[in-house]
Write a protein that binds this DNA or RNA. Structure first.
Length: 587
DNA sequence: CTAGGGTTAG
């Protein structure tokens, strides 16, 4: 087992020196192993205490007072119970206060007490105190697990790694499944998915094997980094190794496939699940229902709801939120009837429903009602409302709401900025959009394709083709890959300037990146060539369009007809005339 | 009912 000396030295190694300064407590805090009362027969009977009635801070305070004044001193287990429920109601500061009091009163705390206290420090983002508490008595693997998780929670990734390595190297404790999970999950969530995968590989070379939860955490990490196929690959690898995936593993893989719209592949996984006798739970159903709702496949979503009912899988708040979001109108009442309390997401979904239907005044009333329900507007609430106002071109009201948001310390995120930038652009204020963009970039907010797409689109539409092209060329240095839409816009910009050669280069580049060229792109390109009277160069594009079943638009066609006057009508052009051109243009 | 565990919303 762990020796206290080893543990403390590990902590010193970790922190350099002196972390225990200022921490003092009575020595001999642990009970002697064979005290008079350690045998069950002599153990005074503890009065029953109902901890489940602790629902809020004042209950915990009252109970603590009561326990302190009890004639027979409550056992440490009773105190631990109280601490535990206090943590469950998220009163971490009070839990720590009780912990201090217990030390002051000389209550013999144990490893459980200490782990709870360390956990509270971590959740309150006070890692230093967490480490300091460890001087109190012998930490075990659970305590270290709590600390590792706390380090990740406080964004101290390197420190978590160092601590983990030291625990291994000095054999301070044997890492268990929970510790490996804490490491894998922490690494993945801090964007270190590949190191997490390496860690599992490294451990598997020395230790027996990684459990299903750690694998699941890694799969989630891979999925979130867009490596869905790697995740699926790993899923089969783990099955080969004899580690059986469970409902969580499958659900997260199903989520990954749904994100990519691969609903057919999802069926393979659900079949695998039923073959392995793994039942879908409410999570799995929620993911599936959400996917179908997003694709407007309401029949399938309804079928799933029916299956849920048959299998006694109960809808939760998220099921209802998904439905509100998907159906946009079913309201919140039915969830209230089922005894579920709508949360801020419920209202955000409903708000979104009103906004996308253009029922902006109802949306606004709902927005105002949220605080009356005891809920606080969050970033998403503001984003949805601002977006709704902007759709109606009520820009100044949207900006006012943004100011309100900042005043109330609700932090704007990428979505907020995307909406605002898009609004500026759509209102023709491209100069303001550009300087706003630079301001956001200065804040270090991560921006995406949507952000830049909105600005580039605005610039193009307002004739600022060179500025748009500059920004487009800077995308890769900002870690953003252009999508088909952005390529099309810039190709359009080049075409507009008559730079068809540059446009052609971009067209080739977008094809090599696997972006699908759509009707718009072909039309722009063809029109640009026709404008330069280069009919022979335009024809190959028209041919490709014919092959792909894409149609030329009216202005392309009229230019084409124009230039065909007096040209020899070869077979292709005749066919084109017959198949593609609308009758009124031919005549 | 003595501590630490992976999956779902814009």
């Amino acid at each position: 087992m762990t020796s206290k000396r080893a543990a403390v030295s590990a902590i010193n190694l970790f922190h350099g020196r002196g972390f225990l300064n200022g921490w003092s407590h009575k020595s001999g805090i642990l009970s002697p192993p064979f005290s008079l009362f350690s045998s069950k027969a002599f153990q005074p009977k503890q009065p029953r205490i109902d901890f489940s009635c602790v629902k809020e801070l004042k209950d915990a305070i009252e109970l603590f007072q009561k326990m302190k004044s009890m004639r027979r001193e409550p056992s440490i287990r009773m105190y631990n119970n109280l601490l535990s429920v206090t943590v469950k109601i998220e009163q971490y500061s009070f839990a720590l206060y009780m912990f201090d009091e217990m030390l002051r009163l000389g209550v013999p705390v144990d490893a459980y007490t200490m782990t709870i206290a360390v956990n509270c420090c971590c959740l309150l983002k006070d890692i230093k105190s967490g480490f300091a508490i460890m001087g109190g008595c012998e930490p075990d693997v659970t305590t270290f697990n709590t600390l590792i998780k706390g380090l990740f929670l406080n964004h101290k990734v390197a420190e978590a790694g160092k601590l983990f390595n030291k625990l291994l190297r000095f054999r301070i404790c044997e890492p268990d499944d929970v510790m490996i999970l804490a490491m894998v999950d922490g690494l993945c969530k801090s964007g270190n998915v590949l190191p997490a995968r390496d860690l599992i590989r490294r451990l598997e070379r020395s230790r027996s094997r990684t459990d299903v939860k750690a694998y699941s955490a890694l799969l989630v990490g891979l999925r979130k980094s867009g490596m869905v196929d790697d995740a699926l690959q790993l899923l089969s690898t783990m099955i080969e190794k004899g580690i059986s995936p469970n409902v969580v593993t499958y659900s997260s893989m199903i989520q990954g496939l749904c994100d990519l719209g691969r609903l057919e592949d999802v069926k393979v996984l659900t079949n695998e699940m039923s073959n392995s006798n793994i039942s879908l739970n409410v999570f799995t159903f929620n993911i599936l229902i959400d996917a179908y709702c997003k694709e407007r496949k309401m029949k399938e979503a309804d079928d799933l709801l029916e299956i849920m009912k048959q299998r006694n899988v109960y809808r939760d708040v998220i099921t209802y939120n998904t439905l509100i979001d998907g159906y946009c109108s079913r309201g919140i009442d039915s969830m209230v009837d089922k005894g579920l309390k709508p949360d801020i997401v419920s209202y955000n979904c409903l708000l979104n429903g009103y906004c996308i239907k253009g029922r902006i005044d109802e949306a606004w009333l709902l927005f105002l009602k949220v605080p009356l329900k005891g809920l606080e507007h969050n970033t998403c609430t503001y984003n949805t409302m601002i977006d709704g106002l902007f759709i109606k071109r009520r820009f100044s009201e949207g900006w006012k709401l943004f100011e309100d948001m900042e005043a109330r310390r609700v932090s704007p995120d990428m979505y907020t900025y995307n909406t605002l930038l898009d609004g500026l652009c759509r209102n023709g204020e491209t100069g303001e959009a550009l300087s706003f963009l630079h301001m956001i970039e200065g804040k270090g907010v991560t921006l995406n394709r949507v952000t830049y797409g909105a600005v580039i689109n605005g610039l193009c539409k307002n004739g600022k083709h060179d500025v748009a092209t500059d920004l487009f060329n800077q995308l890769s240095s900002r870690g953003v890959l252009p999508n088909a839409r952005m390529y099309t816009m810039i190709i359009g910009a080049f075409c507009h300037e008559g730079s068809t050669e540059e446009a052609k280069c971009l067209l080739t580049e977008m094809q090599s990146r696997g972006c699908a060229l759509d009707e718009v792109t072909y039309n722009i390109m063809t029109r640009s060539l026709l404008k330069k009277k280069e009919l022979s160069k335009a024809i190959p594009y028209l041919e490709v369009m014919c092959e792909k079943g894409l149609s030329a638009d009216v202005s392309t066609l009229s230019m084409l007809v124009d230039q065909m006057q007096g040209q020899t009508k070869d077979d292709f052009l005749l066919r084109l005339m017959k198949d593609v051109l609308p009758k009124d243009i031919v005549s």
